[in-house]
Simulated scan of single mutants.
Amino acid sequence: MSKIRITKEFSFEMAHALRNYDGPCRNIHGHSYKLFVTIIGEPKQDDADPKNGMLMDFGALKKLVNTEIVDKYDHSVVVYKNDERLPEMQKLFENIIIEAKQPTCENLVSDFASTINTRLPDNLSVFSIKLYETATSYAEWYASDNPTE
């Protein structure tokens, strides 16, 4: 059986601030993120299965990523747990997500891969995740680069 990859694209709006950053991104600012999730596995080969020939129904992948990532992060302010400005931000904003790591594109893409991988059926896995922070800047995560995750 052949290994196949499928990809689904998502978008969401999110703000963040980078603690101790030496540039303008230390301030709260927002991005229009584009997220590409690629999974890999073998398509089902069972004539009795309504998903015969599919790796995963795109609708099921959409539901999983929307539930675990998009619905959570969309229109949120994401802040590092050690940011000394956090108490003040919590007074000003309702939808704050406190992250264990600096909320960079690189850290987010790694966390997203881990989250999605734990929710996939056993026969499937994340092949790659690409997260665009701007139209010309993105971070990528590949399973082949992270064999222990």
Rank of each mutant, 00 (worst) to 15 (best):
I4G: 00
R5D: 14
R5A: 14
K8P: 10
K8T: 14
K8M: 10
E9S: 15
F10C: 15
F10M: 13
F12H: 13
E13K: 14
E13D: 15
M14K: 15
A15P: 12
H16K: 13
H16C: 12
H16W: 14
A17I: 11
L18V: 09
R19L: 09
R19S: 11
D22F: 00
D22W: 01
I28E: 05
H29W: 13
G30R: 10
H31R: 10
Y33K: 08
K34L: 09
K34D: 07
L35G: 08
L35V: 05
L35Q: 08
V37L: 04
T38K: 06
I39T: 03
I39G: 01
I40T: 11
P43F: 09
K44N: 04
Q45K: 12
Q45I: 09
Q45T: 07
A48W: 02
A48T: 08
D49M: 01
D49S: 04
K51Q: 12
G53T: 11
M54N: 09
L55F: 08
M56Y: 03
M56A: 08
M56L: 15
D57A: 11
F58P: 14
G59H: 03
A60Y: 12
L61H: 11
L61G: 14
K63E: 14
L64P: 07
L64I: 13
V65I: 11
N66C: 12
N66V: 04
E68W: 04
I69C: 05
D71F: 12
K72F: 04
H75T: 06
S76R: 11
V77Q: 05
V79F: 03
Y80E: 08
Y80H: 11
N82P: 00
N82T: 09
E84A: 09
L86R: 03
P87K: 06
E88G: 02
M89T: 02
M89E: 02
M89C: 06
N95P: 00
N95H: 15
I97A: 02
K101R: 12
P103I: 07
T104E: 02
C105E: 00
E106S: 07
E106V: 02
E106N: 05
L108N: 03
V109S: 05
S110V: 00
D111R: 13
D111G: 01
A113I: 03
S114R: 07
I116S: 01
N117C: 01
R119I: 00
L120Q: 01
N123E: 10
L124I: 01
L124E: 01
S125W: 04
V126R: 00
F127M: 06
F127P: 00
F127L: 06
S128M: 12
S128Q: 12
S128H: 00
S128N: 13
I129R: 01
I129Y: 05
K130W: 06
L131P: 03
E133Y: 06
T136M: 10
S137I: 14
Y138H: 15
A139Y: 01
A139G: 07
A139L: 03
E140Y: 04
W141E: 09
D145C: 12
P147Q: 13
E149A: 15
